[in-house]
């Protein structure tokens, strides 16, 4: 590693396929990335881009069959999760790696109290006694800003509002001091003012606890506010990866560039017309031999049909370390970029 620091999570060449009656769906194709300690990596993409399936594959949370992880390695602190036995893997899930899902209603069990659901993780993973686990659970609820924590332990999920439920989910994910927290669209189901509360909470917790976070979302606004580095996914592949400011100031992939222009702004000049990305996302029914974005791309040429582009560095650093893009087309120099971005 040129940076010196060893990443806490390193994913190489991950490939996940679903076998269905109508053929195979190549949901994740050759995805590689790494995560440094204390870093927040944003993963952006539309539905079907493979962002959730990638993260589920890391912990082997997908039902197999139909899912099959066909290739790759997932190194957590140097150990490959894909080769691990079931018992060891169970210690990782909810232990070293915490997971927060999109919908806090369906991911909490409605028939158990919130307290039971938090202490379950503590007793299984950390071997705490009942009393110790409860004390820790109260601490956790206080940490995520739930008032009257001791009393709320006895409450059921339906007695919490959406935002409060998501705080409970975060408390459960944080219960065992994870090295990595994976948050899959954690604020998508929430209203903007509640979303702002949760984003603020995550920023605070991160500063306090220093864990690495992977934050999956389709909302570029959220990413701009919290991420250090961003990975853009399309059609099951990583199409661009860069530090957050670099990505927004200097997008290289035609998809990223177009995506940034389809969103109206909340301040500044009101745009006369929104840019449109014509067409639909690809079906992923065949192993990709061409660029997945080619049919919607305004810069496509012959090579895009013939060859799936590999990620190449944009700023001279190694792929994955700085800014890289998977595209045959060369974005114009910065002068022209300014107008494109405006």
């Amino acid at each position: 590693m040129p940076n010196g620091a060893k990443p806490v999570l390193q994913v190489r060449g991950l490939k996940t396929v679903f076998r269905t009656r109508t053929g195979e769906v190549h949901a994740v194709n050759n995805v590689s990335f790494h995560l440094q300690r204390g870093e927040l990596l944003g993963v952006v993409g539309e539905s079907g881009s493979g962002k959730s399936v990638t993260m589920m594959s890391l912990l082997r949370l997908l039902p197999a069959p139909p899912a099959e992880i066909r290739a790759g390695e997932v190194l957590l602190n140097g150990r490959d999760l894909l080769q691990m036995g079931a018992d060891e893997l169970r210690d990782v899930r909810g232990g070293k790696v915490g997971f927060v899902f999109q919908d806090p209603m369906t991911s909490l069990n409605p028939v158990f109290t919130v307290g039971m659901q938090i202490t379950e993780a503590l007793r299984k993973h950390m071997g705490l006694s009942k009393a110790a686990a409860e004390t820790r659970a109260v601490e956790l609820l206080q940490l995520v800003g739930i008032p009257d924590a001791r009393k709320r332990l006895k409450a059921f999920p339906h007695q919490f509002s959406g935002g409060m439920r998501q705080r409970v989910m975060i408390a459960i994910a944080l219960a065992c001091d994870p090295d990595v927290l994976i948050a899959d669209e954690p604020t998508t189901a929430l209203d903007v003012t509640i979303q702002a509360q949760i984003l603020e909470l995550v920023k605070e917790l991160r500063a306090k606890l220093g864990m690495a976070i992977i934050w999956i979302t389709h909302d570029l606004g959220v990413i701009a506010g919290i991420a250090d580095r961003v990975m853009v996914m399309y059609g099951g592949q990583v199409v661009e990866q860069a530090p957050v400011r670099e990505l927004f100031a200097n997008p290289q992939h035609p998809y990223t560039r177009a995506l940034l222009k389809t969103i109206p702004k909340i301040s500044g000049e009101r745009e006369a017309r929104l840019k449109v990305i014509e067409g639909q996302p690809p079906m992923l029914s065949a192993a990709p031999s061409a660029c997945p974005f080619r049919e919607r791309c305004e810069y496509r040429h012959d090579r895009c049909n013939a060859e799936n582009p590999l990620r190449r560095a944009v700023d001279g650093r190694e792929v994955g370390q700085g800014h890289d893009v998977a595209c045959h087309w060369q974005a114009p120099a910065p002068a022209a970029r300014e107008t494109a971005h405006a």
């Binding site: 984003l199 606004g221 701009a224 506010g225 400011r245 940034l260």
Partner: peptide
């Protein structure tokens, strides 16, 4: 509370 897609801002 709206998230502007602009990290600088």
């Amino acid at each position: 509370a709206v998230n502007e897609p602009d990290p600088e801002l």
